[in-house]
């Protein structure tokens, strides 16, 4: 359940920020989430939420013309209208890189400040999370 909530929260925050062009919020949200919640599933949830936010925002902006916009950008950047799919893939991979970078920083910060008991607690938390 927590994973789903994280996905939804990350997606909502990212999407809201993207409405006004705040792409850097993707890093921030990922960092804060991973700082607060540890574990592989959390990381995957952050990545999933990011993709949902970016994908949905792209679709919302371009509407039914998502492919056409991608083709046009490919024309401008690569001089090849047929490579629109590359533009979509690059955009999503770029979003994932932002989230990964944020997650890494968040995780590192979390690990940096933790104490031994916290490690144990974290391990317990992680185990707990895996049973959610």
């Amino acid at each position: 359940m927590r994973v789903v909530l994280i996905i939804a929260a990350v997606a909502a925050l990212d999407a809201a920020a993207l409405l006004v062009g705040w792409w850097w919020v993707t890093i921030l949200v990922a960092a804060l989430t991973v700082f607060r919640f540890a574990g592989t599933r959390v990381l995957l949830a952050v990545l999933a939420g990011t993709v949902v936010a970016w994908g949905a925002s792209m679709a919302a902006q371009a509407g039914s013309q998502l492919g056409a916009v991608a083709d046009l950008v490919a024309a401008m950047a690569l001089n090849n209208r047929g490579l629109g799919w590359v533009v979509i893939v690059v955009s999503l991979v770029y979003a994932l890189l932002l989230a990964l970078a944020g997650s890494w920083i968040g995780g590192a910060a979390r690990r940096l400040r933790r104490t031994e008991p916290e490690v144990v607690a974290e391990q317990e938390e992680t185990l707990e999370a895996q049973h959610v």
């Binding site: 792409w23 792209m58 371009a62």
Partner: peptide, 30 residues
Amino acid sequence: VLVPSATGLGALPALGTALNPGTGVWRLSA
């Protein structure tokens, strides 16, 4: 990630500005 996102690199435009759905290239149809 941040440097090319914020300022671009060489001929590469600032990716954050260019690719974000809110104000970047995806607004073309809008």
